[in-house]
Design a protein around this nucleic acid. Sequence first.
DNA 1: CAACAACTTGTCTTTCCGGTCAGCAATAAG
DNA 2: CTTATTGCTGACCGGAAAGACAAGTTGTTG
Lengths: 217, 217
Amino acid sequence: MTDKKTKRTKQSINREELESRILRCAEVVFAEKGYNGSSMEAIAASASISKQNLIYYFSNKELLYQRVLKEMLDIWIEKLSFLETQGDTPETVIRRYVREKMQLSRLYPNGSKVFAHEIISGAPVLKEYLISHLKPQFDRDVILVKSWISKGLVDDIDPEHLFFTIWAATQTYADFSVQMEVLLGKHRLDEADFERAESAVTDFVVRALGAKKNNYK
Amino acid sequence: MTDKKTKRTKQSINREELESRILRCAEVVFAEKGYNGSSMEAIAASASISKQNLIYYFSNKELLYQRVLKEMLDIWIEKLSFLETQGDTPETVIRRYVREKMQLSRLYPNGSKVFAHEIISGAPVLKEYLISHLKPQFDRDVILVKSWISKGLVDDIDPEHLFFTIWAATQTYADFSVQMEVLLGKHRLDEADFERAESAVTDFVVRALGAKKNNYK
DNA sequence: CAACAACTTGTCTTTCCGGTCAGCAATAAG
DNA sequence: CTTATTGCTGACCGGAAAGACAAGTTGTTG
C-alpha cells in the first residue's frame, strides 16, 4: 500500500517486521506473566494480531518462548565475551564489564526478566545451554581473575563468587526494578537512576577487588 | 493413632500440622512453576492429599499463594529489622546483616524464589505490602548509613544502592542456585559453598564500605 | 450410644487455552 | 487474466484446571 519502492519481496519484509514485533511483544508478556501465565491469545493481542495469525508465524508457544530466550542470550553472549581483552588493567576490564552488564539491564529489562523466571524455575529449557556455552566462558574468566591475583594486581578475592555478585548486582536493576521504584518513591527508574546505579556498583566492585589504582570519582 | 497423650483436640493438632505441610509443599511447587504453572492438583499431590481436601484447607489458589508469600515475608521482616542496633560498629552491623540474609537464602530458598517470581512479575500482590512495610524500614536504614557517612565511619558510598547490591548478592544464592550449580559443576550447593559465599559477599561489602577497621580473614 | 462437628473423597460443571482445519484474501508470477 | 503462493481468519476440538456440591467417614462430646 505505502511502499512502492520496496518492490523486492514486499511480503518478506512485512514478515520480518511482524516477526520481530511479535518477539518484542512476547518478551514483555513472558516477562510479566511467566511462561505458563502467558496465553498465546494475550501475546497476539499485545501484538495486535489474531491468535491464529500468531500461530501462523510461531507454530507453538514453546517455540516462541525459546526464540525469545535465544534472542536475549545471543545479545548477552555477544556483549559479555570481552574479559579476555588482555593488556588492559583489571580495573579497566572490570569497569567496562560492569558497565556493559548494567546497560543490558537498562536496555533489555524484559528479556532479563524472562531469563530470570527461567533460571528460578530450574532452567528446564536453558540448562543445556548454560552447560555448553556459559560454563566454558565462566571458567576462562575465572582463570583470568586468578591470574590477576597471582600477579598481585588485585587482592585475594574469591573469583567465582565475584562473578556471582557482579551478575546479581547488575541484573537486579532489571528484574527487581519494581521493588526499587517503590523504595525510591519513583514511578519509573530513569536515566539518572541508572547512572547512579552504574557508578555505585562499579565502585563497589573496584573497591572490593582492591585494584591497584583506585582513582574513581 | 499414635498420640494418646495429646488428648486435647487431636484434630486441631493434625490440622495445624497438615496446614503447615501444605504450605511447605505449596512453596516448593510455586517456586518451581510460578503461580500460573502450579495447579491445585499438583500441590495436593505433592502434599499427598486429594485436591478437594486441599481446597478444604485453603479455599482457593490465590489465598494459598498469599499465605505462602506472607509466611516468607514475616520471616524476613523479623530477621532483617535489626539495623538499628546502635552502639555496634558499622562493620559489625553489616557483617551480621549480610550473614542473616545469606542464611535466609540457605534456609528458605523456595520462599525466596516465590518472592522473586512475584517481584519480577511486577508485584501485583505484594506492591502494597512493600510500600507499607518495606519502604519505612528501608528509609530508616538508609538514614543510619548516611549518619555513618557523615560521622566518617564509612566512605561516601551510595546508601540506597548499597542495599540493592546487598540484597541482590545474597538473594541470588537462592534464586539463581541452578545457574551456580552448573557453573561450579555441582549437583547441589552444599554447606561449604554457602560458607564460602557468605564470607566472599561479606568481605566484598565491608571492603566496598571502606569501614574503618578492615580486619577480615 | 447418639448426635454433632470435622474431615475426606467422587462427581460434575464451567471456563480457559493450545492447537487444528478449512477456507477466504492478497500478492506474486506467468 | 490466470494461476499459484503466501498471508490471514472463523469455527471448532480436546484437554486441563478451578471450584461447587453432595455424600460418606471419622472423631468428639453429651
